[in-house]
Amino acid sequence: MAVTRSGGFAGLVRRAEVDSADHPTVAGLIGDVRLDDVPEPRPQPDRYVYDIEIGDHSAQVGEADLHGPLRELVDHVMTLGG
């Protein structure tokens, strides 16, 4: 899976990729995440935008909507693969 973070005041792009086969924690978190359920991004000035890809699924999530297991997953992947 991969996470690409864009936006923020700086506008810098950061991408992190992790193979869930190598990371049981990531695999576990993926099981708790429903990418189809994330709300449509509401663009807000200088907030981060996350493009999340899990296998064939992808979704764009605004920083303010990143909660619960999805937040945990994104933070974990950014730490591991950033």
């Binding site: 936006g7 506008g11 935008v49 493009d51 764009q60």
Partner: peptide
């Protein structure tokens, strides 16, 4: 681009 709300900082 699709990132950063269409590259607003670019």
């Amino acid at each position: 681009t699709d990132s950063d709300n269409g590259g607003v900082h670019i």
